[in-house]
Design a protein around this nucleic acid. Structure first.
Lengths: 232, 232
DNA sequence: CGAATGCTTGAAATTCGTCAAGATCCGTGG
DNA sequence: CCACGGATCTTGACGAATTTCAAGCATTCG
């Protein structure tokens, strides 16, 4: 727990705080506390009372709901600069878990709500991001409802590739990256089983669409074919 | 196209406008135009430019995306008092279609954005609703990813029952209501085929969980059993 | 009455999950 | 350096659930 130093923040201009100038940032500076999460550690539990929200500084978080059978379904991934939590809600909707070591800038919810009210530009930014997240969630519903296992996994690989290796390499060149999730995680994200994920990935490799150099590593050899499969 | 009469509006205090007092409503009054949609008529097309948003006054709308196979997936239902469209976005994310004759209060997007900026209470309300919609969409992802056909349909019936016949009847008494969708619509909403929907509904009736007095009509006989199926 | 639409039903095919076994990777300690 | 053990991943065989394909029924409307 270190006092935050906003001017030195890795996501200073990408997170919600980007709506504030250096002076206004002072209010947040006094509110926020940094917190580190180890891989697998949880930040919130679905259904529990929660009076905090946060900006994600580094690492990746998952949002999960558990069906009554105890099975967890991942309903969202959070990346650095993303906002965590739900202002004006007293209970957490989802369980928040760190996939990898993560760092958060945590605010008391009520204090954060006051800051939002005082800084319309920040509230506006949160609204726009929430609208975008809603659109993305609805888009993912399409995949989960209709797509075959093949389509879901192809789309997942392209998503991660765009996010992880997006900036590297010219189009046409193979892109290599590390998956943020193990096979079980992919299964929980896509609503499949570990076995199906494994089988489909090996088949992609057998068919020359990807290469799997290591457990977590993937090289995209034929993004166009993957895109065709993802489209159904 | 009639000039709106906000004081006489059916959703005056449930829609976003509920955040405004009668005087402030004047600005919206000048902006809004009523528009009627026939059943099946479309209000927006996914991917097209869109410079309007609206409040739904009556009727039911669907939000759909079409996968490249031409198949449409329903990603959301909109009921009276719900907000339609996405401020600050120049393109429509989803196709908006009237399931039944509907009436909208339509605003030019940019004018509406100005009203939002001038009335923080309304922007706040939109933010809270968007956050709620996001939570709901993520919850539905669980159903679509993991739930069996049986669970999806049971949950759907309970959802509609709660919304349509929710206020009528004591607990324990059978509730009867009309489905807003035909079999094909239910299939598109739940990510199933028409045949599966039909088979499951017939089996529910055979097992005494529901009665199906007419094409669109449903009587819930055993809501607890349905809830168990939906959960599991 | 007849045609059109929407709904139901049946049989075959497919996909995915389940169960079970085996292989590979990786850290630990001998 | 190598052997061991646990975790993760792969592979196979089987079964259940859903889709697909194909009729047939019923309701509505001209």
């Amino acid at each position: 727990m270190t006092a935050p130093v906003c001017s030195d923040c890795a996501v200073r201009d990408r997170a919600l705080c980007g709506a504030l100038d250096d002076v206004q940032l002072g209010a947040l500076n006094r509110l926020g506390r940094r917190r580190r999460l180890a891989a697998g550690e949880r930040f919130a539990w679905a259904g529990d009372e929660s009076d905090v929200c946060a900006n994600l500084l580094s690492g990746i978080l998952t949002l999960t709901t558990s069906s009554l059978g105890g099975e967890e379904q991942i309903v969202g991934l959070l990346y650095p600069a993303d906002f965590v939590g739900r202002p004006w809600a007293t209970r957490a909707d989802f369980t928040v878990t760190a996939l990898a070591p993560a760092e958060l800038c945590v605010f008391p919810r009520e204090g954060f709500e006051r800051v939002l009210a005082e800084h319309p530009a920040m509230e506006r930014l949160l609204l726009e991001r929430t609208l975008a997240a809603l659109t993305e969630a609805r888009g993912r519903m399409l995949t989960l409802a209709r797509g075959s296992a093949e389509a879901r996994i192809a789309g997942f690989l392209l998503d991660i590739a765009a996010r992880a290796g997006g900036c590297s390499g010219a189009p046409g060149l193979p892109v290599t990256f590390d998956l943020p999730l193990d096979r079980a995680g992919i299964a929980r994200l896509l609503g499949l089983t570990i076995e199906t994920v494994s089988r489909r990935l090996t088949r992609f490799e057998r068919d020359g669409l990807v290469r799997l150099p290591a457990r977590r590593a993937v090289t995209i050899l034929d993004p166009d074919a993957l895109a065709r499969l993802a489209a159904g």
